[in-house]
Amino acid sequence: MILEAKDLTFRYPCRRAAPVLKGVSLVLRTGERLGLSAPSGRGKTTLCKLLAGWEEPGRGQVMLDGGPLPRRGLCPVQLLWQHPEEAVDPLLKLRATLYEAGQPDPGVLEGLGVRESWLERYPSELSGGELQRICVARAMRPGVRFLLCDEISAMLDLVTQARMWRFLLGQAEQREMGLLIVSHDRALLERLCTRILDWEEVEGLGETRKVRQ
């Protein structure tokens, strides 16, 4: 499967100023681990939102195998949110959150070190790292082909970080998923990814191509 961003332009409706994204293009294949590094404020998170279908681009298209993203049912492209405390419903116990799309694989919970006792608590009673692991476990559904990891390990200590990435790389290989890993930690990307793009290579790629042609 191929996830493709074609010449995306996007501006937030309330802001009249310049668009956040301008002519962004990107290709991600299953089985690939693509790293994207950029300084903050360039629109990495906005790009992830567009790729996952949370927002509609003003111009350009997000294509999954040449067609649009499905609007109903489980989306094959899952975004892992940077702030796990915002990605879980504060009024629900974590068991309900984790089972949102069905019962998770027991191997997944074990691999991520999610303890059974966490699931009887509310989000405010767990740390960011614990919540993030639950969010990752929640996204590990059979139909998922692409994971967009937007700075997902920034709040973890090094041991847990290493453990989570080892788990994610293993799962990506086993399930033949494509990973987009967004971070401004260049060293981390170099360890994890099969291909790394700088923001300059992503933004305005469409335009430079046109110029070259």
Partner: peptide, 26 residues
């Protein structure tokens, strides 16, 4: 617009389910 509702939608919850599970308690 909250990320956890977006998450629920991308995980396949229908509008009715989102309303019952996430919106109504809030």
């Amino acid at each position: 617009q909250a990320p956890y509702i977006r998450m629920a939608r991308q995980l396949g919850a229908s509008q009715g389910e989102v309303f019952r599970k996430h919106l109504a308690p809030h």
